[in-house]
Design a protein around this nucleic acid. Structure first.
Lengths: 106, 106
DNA sequence: TTGTCAAATCAAATTGTCTTGATTTGAGGA
DNA sequence: TCCTCAAATCAAGACAATTTGATTTGACAA
């Protein structure tokens, strides 16, 4: 089985930028609309939009349209997928909690 | 407590590049010296060296000097730290396995 | 339909990352 | 010491990501 390194890299694009991490941290409080993020991030609207797109494409953030507004929230599944991917970079044979299945979902 | 987003981003720099993921995948087999990686990656020596530096700075890879040779290996602790960081981006209140401590080390 | 507003997209400039040959460093061995 | 070799560093150019004002889109109200 060939790994899709391109896709895996894409997932982590979300986390390798300071501003995007800050946005994610704001979304920890729950779903927020762009205008709210805009105020808290102090960035031009287009810049924020750019980062939101990358966050969505990486799968860790989801957007929800409601009339004129777009609400963004963290995708728990998306983060879980990233964690799952990360785990695959731990060499086999390393004794580690969770290998028996208790953390299979993370 | 202020998060050090810069440092967190640095950690994930390791995983957001296709070539670095490929290098990590090669290191899953165990410690390897640069010359071995060089053959398998088919990259100029200086290019590989550049990526190894980023991998080390992100904390997920460790280098070990042995005479003229440098051996690199995956740092299980480093990957664990990254996973730990990732987990902090899961919103509170989301029901999830591992919250009771069984996966505290991951 | 026309206007308004939130948000996405565009395009051009800036900034940052990556690539690579050349050079340097540093550990042996002759 | 001097040479050789592995690997790091340097420096310049190529390439990719980011920034931003301007423009477009699409939803709703008048």
């Amino acid at each position: 089985m060939e790994r899709d390194f391109f896709d895996e890299a894409k997932t982590f694009k979300a986390f390798c930028d300071e501003k995007r991490l800050r946005i994610l941290a704001l979304l920890l409080d729950g779903e927020k609309c762009v205008c709210a993020l805009n105020e808290e991030m102090d960035l031009p609207q287009s810049t924020l939009s750019y980062h939101m797109k990358i966050l969505c494409e990486s799968g860790v953030v989801e957007g929800r349209q409601e009339g004129k507004w777009t609400h963004y929230s963290i995708s728990v599944q998306g983060i879980g997928g990233a964690a799952e991917t990360l785990k695959r970079y731990v060499p086999k044979g390393v004794i580690q909690l969770g290998d028996e299945g208790c953390c299979a979902s993370l």
